[in-house]
Each structure stands twice: as structure tokens, then as C-alpha cells.
Amino acid sequence: RKEMTAACTPRRRIINLTSVLSLQEEINEQGHEVLREMLHNHSFVGCVNPQWALAQHQTKLYLLNTTKLSEELFYQILIYDFANFGVLRLSEPAPLFDLAMLALDSPESGWTEEDGPKEGLAEYIVEFLKKKAEMLADYFSLEIDEEGNLIGLPLLIDNYVPPLEGLPIFILRLATEVNWDEEKECFESLSKECAMFYSIRKQYISEESTLSGQQSEVPGSIPNSWKWTVEHIVYKALRSHILPPKHFTEDGNILQLANLPDLYKVFERC
């Protein structure tokens, strides 16, 4: 597991931080080997919608929660590849102030007048994250320049770009939802926020969305749709870069829909 690298990086740093090793061990302890084997050997059937997909393993048909699986995938990559990410360069710098204002204007932020003026909160978020810029760049390849612009994001899987519609809320939550006081809790909560931002979430995906850094293989055609990215990038990574937690067998994120021999018997009677 320590050699797990989802995106190509030129050289690998050895990380011996106790906090990170502890988080890696927790993933191992909570892992479910049968689910790992199923995901490793599954045959992708198709997307139901951005949140759900169908896959077959041996004779069984499964309904998989793409949102939760991708979130767990990105969390584990962030923990196992800690401080070893490439950088996704933004085509132009994104001012943190503008991103924070967009987030505060969104109902998702939960902002009320009692929280104070949005401009003041946005300025605080910019200054707060600028103070964390060195650590964010060093460990997470999340790059913020001296003017308070976001200029780079971590490359977690080759050819995958997170849904940038979720970027404003991500920046807001970096400042408000991460435990910045304790090292282990900081790395864990920061990785979880980043994983949620990178995950496939239906509120940020339309039929026209593209999450891939590449064009489709047909010359002159439109960019790959999110469905292509889910199948050929995300579920491909799920084959080798995730140890599913045991609770996925109990919380409805992986559901067995049918045993195909039983279905064949039904059709034979028709």
C-alpha cells in the first residue's frame, strides 16, 4: 500500500510523520478485503446518474454509490500519497476573496446577518489561508500566491479535474471546517474536505460537464463527458487505489441488486 500512486510524480518523498502513518493504519484496520476484491475485478455496466452506477462482479449485479466511493478513493490517495502530488495549474489565478464571496452568497454556506458582513468574512478567509499557504503547498500541492490567488490544485489521478463549480464552497470550508490546531486532526479533516471537493457530486455535474483533463479519443470531437470520466478514470482507479471500509457493506453505498443465475431462471419461465 505504501507504493500506491494514482498520479505520476517525478520522485517520491518518504513521509514518516506519526500522524500520517496513524491515518494510514486506520484505513488498513477499517478495510474490507472482500469489497476490495469485488472492486478490483468488477465489470463496469454503466452510470445511472452522477451519484449511482451499476457494476457486475462474477454472477452478481451491484449498485454502487459513485459519490461515496470516489470520496473515499480521493481521501485514501491523499493519505497514502501525502506530500507526493503533482499540481493542476489553473488556467488563470482565482482570487480567494472572490471565491469566498461566491460561497457566502450560496445558501449552502449557511451565512446569516449575525455572522457579520460577507466582505469582512471573505477578507478573513483570504488572510487565514495565506498564512497556511506554505503547508498547503508542501503537503497538498494546493498553491496560493502572495496576492491571495489560488493558482494550483493537487493532481490526485492523472487526467482528472475536480468539478470546479464546487471550488468556492471548498475554499470556505478549508477556513471553517478544518481542525487547524492538532496535526493528525488537521491532516485528516483537510484531506476529507479535499476528497469531498474532488468527489463526483450530482449538484455540480450536468450532462455537459467534463471532468477530464483530456479530449476524447476521436479527433475533432467534444470533450469527454462526465460519464466517460466516471467509467474510464474514476472506476479504473477504484480497481487498484481503494481499500473500501467495512461500513460500506452496511450503509447502502454498495448494494447487491441481483444474482444473475437467479434472473436467468426467471427469464426461462417467461
Score class of each variant (00 low, 15 high):
Trp226Phe: 03
Arg201Gln: 06
Phe85Arg: 03
Phe97Cys: 10
Leu174Arg: 00
Tyr75Cys: 03
Leu96Asp: 00
Thr229Phe: 04
Leu243Gly: 03
Pro107Leu: 11
Thr229Ser: 08
Ile200Trp: 06
Trp228Ala: 11
Lys227Ile: 04
Glu177Ala: 07
Gln51Lys: 08
Gly220Pro: 13
Gln203Asp: 15
Leu23Gly: 02
Gln203Met: 11
Val178Leu: 03
Ala7Asn: 07
Val178Arg: 01
Met135Cys: 05
Pro50Trp: 05
His241Ile: 05
His42Gly: 04
Asn84Ile: 01
Lys60Glu: 09
Val87Cys: 14
Val34Ala: 11
Val218His: 14
Met4Lys: 05
Val234Ala: 01
Ile77Asp: 01
Ile171Met: 11
Asn65Trp: 00
Ala237Asn: 08
Lys2Ile: 11
Ile254Arg: 02
Glu217Leu: 14
Trp226Leu: 02
Tyr160Gln: 01
Leu90Gln: 02
Ser43Arg: 09
Leu102Gly: 14
Pro223Lys: 14
Ala7Arg: 05
Asn159Gly: 06
Lys227Glu: 05
Val230Tyr: 00
Leu136His: 00
Asn159Glu: 13
Glu108His: 12
Asp115Ile: 08
Ser191Met: 08
Ala55Gly: 06
Tyr160Leu: 02
Tyr235Phe: 07
Glu231Phe: 01
Met38Phe: 06
Ile242Ser: 02
Ala122Val: 10
Thr210Phe: 07
Gln256Pro: 11
Leu153Ile: 13
Trp228Asn: 06
Gln203Glu: 13
Pro261Tyr: 05
Ala53Lys: 00
Glu231Ala: 03
Arg201His: 02
Glu185Leu: 10
Phe44Tyr: 04
Ser19Thr: 08
Gly116Val: 09
Val45Arg: 07
Asn41Met: 13
Ser19Asp: 03
Pro50Thr: 07
Leu61Trp: 05
His32Thr: 07
Val87His: 09
Asp181Ile: 12
Asn84Lys: 03
Tyr124Asp: 13
Ile15Glu: 04
Leu255Glu: 06
Trp52Arg: 02
Cys186Asp: 01
Leu174Cys: 07
Asp158Glu: 15
Leu238Met: 12
Leu96Lys: 02
Tyr139Cys: 05
Tyr204Asn: 04
Ile242Lys: 02
Arg1Gln: 12
Gly31Pro: 02
Pro245Thr: 03
Ala100Pro: 02
Trp52Ser: 02
Phe97Asn: 12
Glu217Pro: 08
Gln56Lys: 15
Thr67Asn: 05
Phe85Ala: 04
Asn65Thr: 01
Gly148Asp: 12
Asn179Glu: 13
Arg89Lys: 10
Ser240Leu: 14
Trp52Phe: 13
Asp115Met: 07
Lys68Pro: 00
Leu39Lys: 00
Ile200Asp: 00
Asp145Val: 03
Tyr124Asn: 11
Pro245Asn: 04
Leu238Trp: 02
His247Arg: 13
Glu134Pro: 10
His241Gln: 06
Gly116Glu: 13
Phe248Asn: 01
Asp158Trp: 07
Gly120Glu: 10
Ser189Lys: 11
Ile79Ala: 04
Cys47His: 13
Pro219His: 11
Trp228Gly: 07
Gln30Val: 15
Lys265Asp: 15
Val266Trp: 08
Ile205Asn: 04
Leu136Gln: 02
Asn16Thr: 14
Glu183Ala: 03
Gly166Ser: 05
Met101Glu: 05
Tyr204Met: 06
Cys186Arg: 04
Ser191Gly: 13
Ser109Gly: 12
Gly213Gln: 09
Pro117Asn: 11
Trp111Pro: 04
Pro162Val: 00
Glu183Tyr: 01
Phe187Ala: 03
Asp145Asn: 11
Leu99Thr: 06
Arg12Tyr: 13
Leu121Asn: 09
Ile242Asn: 02
Glu37Phe: 07
Gln58Tyr: 07
Thr59Lys: 11
Tyr264Glu: 15
Gln256Lys: 14
Arg173Ser: 04
Ile125Gln: 04
Asn259Leu: 10
Ala6Asn: 06
Ser141Ile: 02
Pro163His: 07
Leu104Gly: 01
Thr59Ala: 13
Glu127Met: 12
Arg239Asp: 01
Arg1Leu: 15
Thr18Asn: 09
Asp138His: 04
Leu190Pro: 00
Val178Ala: 04
Leu211Asn: 14
Ser191Lys: 01
Glu92Pro: 09
Lys131Pro: 10
Leu172Gly: 05
Asp181Gln: 14
Lys246Val: 14
Lys68Val: 11
Glu25Met: 06
Trp226Arg: 01
Ser91Pro: 14
Phe97Asp: 06
Leu190Glu: 00
Phe44Arg: 01
Ser22Thr: 13
Asp251Phe: 04
Arg1Phe: 13
Pro244Trp: 01
Glu108Cys: 07
Ser109Met: 09
Leu121Thr: 13
Leu61His: 04
Glu250Phe: 07
Glu25Gln: 10
Glu177Lys: 06
Phe267Arg: 15
Arg36Asp: 03
Leu153Cys: 04
Asp145Ile: 02
Asn16Gln: 10
Asn41Gly: 15
Pro245Arg: 06
Gln215Phe: 06
Tyr124Ile: 12
Ile157Gln: 03
Glu29Pro: 02
Leu142Tyr: 02
Gly148Tyr: 05
Glu119Cys: 09
Gln30Arg: 13
Pro50Glu: 14
Trp228Cys: 05
Val20Phe: 03
Glu268Ala: 08
Tyr160Thr: 01
Arg12His: 15
Glu217Ser: 07
Ser240Ile: 12
Leu129Cys: 04
Gln214Thr: 11
Ser141Phe: 02
Ile15Tyr: 05
Trp111Cys: 10
Leu255Asn: 11
Leu69Ile: 06
Thr176His: 10
Leu39Glu: 00
Glu3Ser: 12
Leu99Gly: 03
Ile151Val: 13
Leu238Phe: 09
Val45Glu: 04
Leu69Lys: 00
